[in-house]
């Protein structure tokens, strides 16, 4: 089992930055983890402004999260909560 499995399992709901071996950077919140993948969902960003009355945090489509293979992780860092 990947050394990252327990790290992820114990930190579900936390914002994280993962760099995979191909150099790709993933920023998101840990949603769940299984033996092979950690699943992230987008972090809410607040860039301010005033809306027309419609606002759906993450409501633009379920399943927008993505999986990252545990075996492909080069580095994993937890981000502070105030980050988002």
């Amino acid at each position: 089992m990947s050394r990252y499995y327990h790290d992820c399992k114990n930190n579900i709901g936390r914002p994280v930055k993962i760099v995979t071996r191909d150099g790709k950077v993933h920023r998101g919140m840990i949603e769940r983890v299984n033996n092979t993948h950690v699943f992230l969902k987008p972090m809410s960003s607040n860039l301010g402004g005033y809306g027309y009355g419609f606002y759906r945090p993450w409501g633009f489509g379920a399943g927008l999260g993505w999986g990252v293979a545990l075996g492909s992780i080069a580095t994993l860092a937890f981000l502070p909560f105030f980050f988002w």
Partner: peptide, 16 residues
């Protein structure tokens, strides 16, 4: 101070 990801998500949340 915003990445393209931040902007994208913000606009999606507001109706893009």
């Amino acid at each position: 101070d915003a990445t393209t990801d931040d902007i994208h998500l913000h606009l999606l949340n507001h109706g893009l």
